[in-house]
Write a protein that binds this DNA or RNA. Structure first.
Lengths: 342, 342
DNA sequence: TTGTAGGCGTTATCAG
DNA sequence: CTGATAACGCCTACAA
C-alpha cells in the first residue's frame, strides 16, 4: 500500500517541462522567475504532492535544518514548555527540534556536545540554564559554526543571542509583597552556588529587604540545591532557628514544597503560621496544598522568541531579549498574624 | 578559529592511499577487509578526527537516522523520562531524537504527522499514550515506511512494536492494599473515557474490589480527565456523598492531588480521615503533603527498550514488551481508623 | 580483498 | 529569466 516512490525534483521538472534548477527556484521562492512558469511548476508540485528531500538539501547546502535543545535541567515542566515554545515557532517551517539532555558534571561534557553538533550538523542550538551560563560551551558551539541562543536569568550574552527573565526584580517584588503583608522576619532559601539564577534571586532578596526597610538576619539565610530534599532541610533549619521567620521565600517551587513539608511535619499550619513563596510557577505550585504563591516567568514565549532568533538571525536583534516575570498570588502567603508563640 | 573544513571520506581515502569505497567499508565494518588495510584507514580516521556526514549517508541510504517522539501527553515528567530513556539507548549511536508534541484534537492531526514523517524521513517513531492507542495513526506511520513502537498500558500491538505496563494488575494490587489496611468503602476516580489506560485502571479497580471481597458502591465511582481540576471536583463529589469513602484511589497522581485539595478544603486530615492512592509516581507524588502512596511504572526503562526495538528491529522481538509496576507506599494511605463521624 | 562508475535529490555556477 | 553541468559526501553494483 506504500506509495510507489516519492516524487523527486526530476519528476516535477519533467512533468512541467522545465529544468531542475527552475523547479529549485520555485521551491526556494527565487524572485527572478516568470510568474507563468512559477504557477505551472507549482501546479505540478501540488498535483504530485511533492516534498523536497531535506537530506538532499542538507547535503547541498552543507547545513541541516535541525535545532538542538541542549539542557541539563531538572525541571521537567520547564523543559517541556521550552520544547513547545520552540515548536510553536518552527512548526510550519522545514526545521525540526532535536533534544539532547546531558549531564553537566560529566568530564566529557564538552566533547560529547561537540560530537553531537558535528555529527548532526546542527543549524543552531538553544542552551537552557544552568548550562546556558557556561561561556566555554557557548563558544564551542559557535566555533562549530552553529548559532547559539541562551535562555537565562540575566544578561548572559548580547540581545541577538539571548532570552532572559529578570529574576532579581521579580524576587524583589515578592519580598516587598511579604513585607506589605506585614512580615518582617523573612527567611530565604537560596539556590545552589555557581548558578547564575540562584545568584540573581539572592540579590533580589537582598534588594527587596532593603527596599522594604527590613534587616536581614543571617540566621535566616539558608541554601539549597534546587531540589526537594534540600528545600525540606532548609525549611527545617529555618523553623528550628531561635527566632524563626513568619515567612519564607524559596528560590524555586520544588524547594518551597520542601519547606512546606518541613512546616507540616512540625505541625505548623500554612499559611496561618507560616507564609511561603516559591519561584517558577511550575505545575506543582498550583497542586500542593495550600496553592503556592510564586513567581511566574513566561517560559514558552521566551522559547518562541529564542527559536525565532535561531532560525532568523537577520532579524534576531529586533526581537525582545528581556521578559518580565510576575507574582502569582495564591493561598500560601497571607497577612502576618502576630507571633505564633504569643 | 573554525577548523578549515571538515574532512570527508575523500581526504581519508587520499591520506591512507586507498579508495573511497574501502574507507566506506571500514566505516560500515564490512567483514571482507584486510586487517592491515583496516587498521591503516582507522589510524587516518582517528588522526583526521573524521566523522561521516550523516546527511550524505541519509541521502545515499534513503533513510535518516532520526527517531521521532510523537506525543500529546500532559505529564511533563513522564515525557522527559521517556526522552532520557531513548537517549540512554541512542547516545552512542548515530541516531538523534527529534520531538514533536501535537494536539490530539486537531482536525489535521494525521496530515500534520504524515507531513512531519515524510519531511524528516524518520527512521522510526515512538508513540506515547494516549496517542499510542490510535491504530489509524500507527498504520499511517508504517505505511510511510517507518518503524513504530508504541508505549501503552495494555497489549496495543505485537511484542516487537510495544512496551507496556500492566496497569490493571497494578491497580488491583493497590486496591487490595487498601482493603488490607481495613478500608471497605473505597472511592474511585476514573480517567477520561476513550483512554485505554483509564479503562485498564478501571478494570483493575473492579478486579481488586472483587478479589478483596468488597462490593462496589456506584455512588463512589467518579470520573475525571487526568487533570488536577477534575480530580478536585471528583474528590468533592465523593466526599459529599451520603456515605463517603474512607479511602480514594485516583487514576493518576495529579487527580490524587486534586482529591487531596478537596479533602483539605473540607478540613479533613489526610491520611487520618481519608487515605489516598494515586498512579504514576511523578514528581508531585513525593512533593505534596502528605507524600502520596502511588503506583510506579518503569518509564525510563521502557523507553530504553522501546528505542532498542526501534533501532534494532531484527532483535526487537527478543526484548521484553511487558514491564511490571509496583506500589510505592508512602504516608497518604494508612489503616482504617473507624468511621470518622462515629 | 579492493577499485571504478554511477546514483541518491538538491543547489551553485555560469553560460545563454 | 532559464538551463546544462558540476558539486555535496556517501553507498551500491559490478568488475578486477
Amino acid at each position: 500500500m506504500a506509495k510507489a516512490q516519492k516524487p523527486t525534483i526530476n519528476d516535477v521538472a519533467r512533468l512541467s517541462g522545465v529544468s531542475k534548477k527552475t523547479v529549485s527556484r520555485v521551491i526556494n521562492k527565487s524572485p527572478l522567475l516568470n510568474q507563468a512558469t512559477r504557477e505551472k511548476v507549482e501546479a505540478v508540485i501540488a498535483q504530485l504532492d511533492y516534498v523536497p528531500n531535506p537530506q538532499a538539501r542538507a547535503l547541498a547546502l552543507r547545513r541541516n535544518f535541525l535545532i538542538g535543545l541542549i539542557h541539563d535541567n531538572p525541571n521537567a515542566q520547564m523543559v517541556l514548555n521550552v520544547q513547545e515554545g520552540i515548536l510553536d515557532t518552527i512548526r510550519a517551517t522545514e526545521f525540526a527540534l532535536v533534544v539532547r539532555p546531558v549531564d553537566r558534571h560529566s568530564p566529557t561534557l564538552l566533547d560529547d556536545i561537540r560530537h553531537f553538533i558535528e555529527q548532526q550538523r546542527l543549524y543552531g542550538v538553544m542552551l537552557l540554564p544552568p548550562l546556558s551560563e557556561n561561556d566555554e560551551l557557548a563558544r564551542l558551539c559557535r566555533d562549530l559554526g552553529c548559532t547559539v541562543v541562551r535562555m537565562g536569568s540575566a544578561r548572559l550574552d548580547d540581545e541577538a543571542h539571548l532570552v532572559a527573565s529578570n529574576d532579581q526584580e521579580a524576587v524583589c517584588e515578592a519580598v516587598e509583597w511579604l513585607a506589605h503583608l506585614g512580615h518582617h522576619r523573612i527567611g530565604f532559601v537560596a539556590g545552589p552556588e555557581g548558578f547564575r539564577s540562584a545568584r540573581e534571586r539572592e540579590l533580589g532578596f537582598i534588594a527587596g529587604m532593603g527596599r522594604a526597610g527590613l534587616t536581614i538576619d543571617p540566621a535566616l539565610l539558608t541554601r539549597g540545591n534546587y531540589r526537594f530534599e534540600s528545600g525540606k532541610a532548609a525549611g527545617e533549619a529555618l523553623l528550628d532557628a531561635e527566632n524563626p521567620p513568619s515567612a519564607i521565600f524559596a528560590s524555586n517551587d520544588v524547594m518551597a514544597a520542601g519547606v512546606l513539608h518541613a512546616a507540616c511535619a512540625r505541625g505548623l499550619r500554612v499559611p496561618q503560621d507560616l507564609s511561603i513563596i516559591g519561584f517558577d510557577d511550575t505545575a506543582i505550585a498550583a497542586h500542593i496544598w495550600p496553592p503556592l504563591t510564586t513567581v511566574r516567568w513566561p517560559i514558552r514565549a521566551m522559547a518562541r522568541t529564542a527559536a525565532l532568533k535561531l532560525i532568523r538571525p537577520e532579524t534576531a536583534a529586533r526581537e525582545p531579549a528581556f521578559f518580565p516575570s510576575d507574582l502569582v498570588r495564591r493561598a500560601s502567603a497571607i497577612e502576618y498574624s502576630g507571633d505564633p508563640t504569643g
